Amino acid sequence: VTTYKLVINGKTLKGETTTKAVDAETSEKAFKQYANDNGVDGVWTYDDATKTFTVTEMV
């Protein structure tokens, strides 16, 4: 189990959250659901070296 981080650069929501998951794909699903639940829709990137997802909304 690995800890993954999500950085949110939204128009109205900014911040970070973490989750523990067995792999990046599992954490990505959880993070995308979290973003969707909070009305964040944007461009996703992933940095495997830091286990960090970033979602950026276009303004």
Results as ranks from 00 to 15, higher is better:
Glu16Arg: 07
Val43Asn: 07
Lys14Asp: 05
Thr50Cys: 03
Lys20Glu: 14
Lys14Gly: 05
Val40Phe: 10
Gly42Thr: 02
Lys29Gln: 10
Val40Gly: 01
Ala30Glu: 12
Lys32Asn: 03
Lys14Leu: 08
Gly15Cys: 15
Asp37Asn: 09
Tyr34Gly: 01
Glu16Val: 14
Thr18Phe: 14
Ala21Val: 03
Phe31Lys: 00
Glu25Tyr: 11
Asn38Thr: 06
Lys20Gly: 07
Asp23Arg: 04
Asp47Ile: 03
Thr12His: 14
Ala24Met: 14
Val7Arg: 06
Gly15Phe: 15
Glu16Asn: 07
Asn38Phe: 14
Asp37Lys: 10
Val59Tyr: 12
Leu13Asn: 08
Ala35Asn: 03
Ala24Thr: 10
Asn38Asp: 02
Tyr46Thr: 00
Glu57His: 05
Ala35Ser: 04
Trp44Thr: 00
Thr3Arg: 07
Lys51Thr: 03
Trp44Lys: 00
Thr12Asn: 12
Lys51Asp: 02
Ala21Pro: 02
Leu13Glu: 06
Asp41Tyr: 14
Asp23Val: 02
Tyr4Pro: 04
Thr56Ala: 05
Val22His: 11
Thr19Asn: 11
Val59Arg: 10
Glu16Lys: 07
Leu13Arg: 08
Lys5Tyr: 15
Glu25Trp: 11
Tyr4Val: 04
Val40Ser: 02
Val22Pro: 13
Lys51Leu: 08
Thr26Gln: 12
Tyr46Leu: 01
Glu28His: 11
Asn9Arg: 10
Ser27Tyr: 03
Asp37Thr: 09
Glu28Trp: 15
Val22Trp: 11
Lys11Ala: 11
Ala21Arg: 03
Gly15Thr: 14
Asn36Phe: 15
Lys11Met: 13
Lys32Leu: 08
Asp37Trp: 06
Thr17Lys: 12
Ala30His: 14
Asp23Phe: 03
Thr12Leu: 11
Lys29Ala: 11
Ala24His: 11
Ile8Gln: 00
Thr12Arg: 11
Asp47Ser: 05
Thr2Glu: 12
Thr18Pro: 02
Thr2Asn: 12
Thr18Cys: 14
Gln33Gly: 05
Ala24Asp: 05
Lys5Thr: 13
Asp47Trp: 02
Phe53Trp: 13
Thr26Ile: 08
Ala49Gln: 11
Glu16Trp: 14
Trp44Gln: 00
Asn38Tyr: 13
Thr2Val: 12
Thr50Met: 05
Thr50Pro: 00
Ala49Pro: 06
Asn36Leu: 15
Gly10Cys: 14
Thr45Arg: 06
Gly39Phe: 06
Lys29Glu: 08
Asn9Ile: 14
Asp23Ala: 04
Asn9Val: 13
Lys32Met: 08
Thr12Ala: 09
Ala35Glu: 01
Val22Cys: 12
Ala49Lys: 11
Thr3Gln: 11
Thr56Asn: 08
Gly39Ile: 03
Asp48Leu: 05
Thr19Glu: 05
Ala49Val: 11
Glu28Arg: 12
Thr3Val: 13
Val55Asp: 01
Lys32Gly: 02
Thr50Ser: 09
Val1Arg: 10
Val22Glu: 09
Lys51Val: 02
Asn9Asp: 09
Val43Gly: 04
Lys14Phe: 10
Asp37Leu: 11
Val43Trp: 10
Asn36Trp: 14
Tyr34Phe: 12
Ala35Lys: 02
Glu28Cys: 15
Lys11Cys: 15
Glu16Phe: 14
Glu16Ala: 09
Thr3Asp: 09
Asp37Cys: 11
Thr26Val: 07
Lys32Thr: 04
Thr2Ile: 14
Thr17Leu: 15
Asp37Gln: 11
Asp41Val: 14
Phe53Ile: 02
Leu6Pro: 03
Ala49Tyr: 08
Leu6Arg: 00
Glu57Thr: 07
Thr12Lys: 11
Asp41Asn: 12
Thr26Leu: 06
Ile8Trp: 08
Ala35Val: 08
Thr19Gly: 05
Thr17Pro: 02
Thr19Ile: 15
Lys14Thr: 10
Asn9Ala: 08
Glu16Gly: 09
Thr12Met: 10
Thr54Ala: 03
Lys11Glu: 08
Thr56Cys: 06
Lys14Ala: 07
Leu6Lys: 02
Thr12Cys: 15
Val1Phe: 14
Trp44Ser: 00
Asp23Ile: 02
Ala21Glu: 05
Thr50Asp: 04
Gly10Ala: 09
Asn9His: 11
Val22Ile: 13
Thr45Pro: 00
Thr26Cys: 06
Ala49Leu: 12
Lys5Asn: 06
Asn9Met: 13
Val55Thr: 02
Phe53His: 03
Lys20His: 10
Thr19Lys: 07
Thr54Trp: 08
Lys32Ile: 08
Gly10His: 08
Ala24Leu: 11
Val1Tyr: 14
Gln33Met: 09
Asp48Val: 09
Ser27Cys: 13
Lys20Arg: 13
Lys29Tyr: 07
Thr2Pro: 08
Thr19Trp: 11
Met58Glu: 13
Ala30Val: 15
Thr26Arg: 06
Thr45Met: 08
Val22Phe: 12
Asp47Pro: 00
Asp41Ile: 14
Thr18Tyr: 15
Thr26Trp: 06
Tyr4Cys: 04
Ser27Ile: 08
Gly39His: 09
Lys11Arg: 13
Thr3Cys: 13
Ser27His: 02
Asp23Tyr: 03
Thr26Asp: 07
Thr17Val: 15
Glu16Met: 13
Ile8Pro: 00
Thr50Arg: 05
Asp37His: 07
Asp47Thr: 04
Ala49Thr: 12
Thr52Lys: 03
Met58Thr: 12
Thr52Asn: 01
Trp44Glu: 00
Gly39Ser: 06
Lys11Ile: 15
Thr19His: 13
Ser27Arg: 01
Val22Leu: 12
Asp37Phe: 08
Gly39Asp: 06
Ala49Met: 10
Thr50Trp: 03
Asn38Pro: 01
Thr26Tyr: 06
Lys20Tyr: 12
Thr52Ser: 03
Lys5Asp: 03
Thr45Asn: 08
Met58Pro: 10
Thr17Phe: 15
Glu16Cys: 15
Ala24Lys: 15
Phe53Met: 02
Ala35Leu: 11
Thr52Trp: 01
Asp48Gly: 06
Lys20Val: 13
Tyr46Asn: 00
Thr56His: 06
Lys14Ile: 09
Asp37Pro: 01
Phe53Asp: 00
Thr2Met: 10
Thr17Ile: 15
Thr45Tyr: 09
Phe53Leu: 02
Phe53Gln: 01
Gly15Lys: 12
Phe31Arg: 00
Gly42Leu: 03
Lys51Tyr: 08
Trp44Pro: 00
Val1Met: 15
Thr19Val: 15
Ala21Ser: 09
Trp44Ile: 02
Lys29Asp: 05
Asp23Glu: 03
Glu25Phe: 11
Thr26Ala: 13
Met58Ala: 11
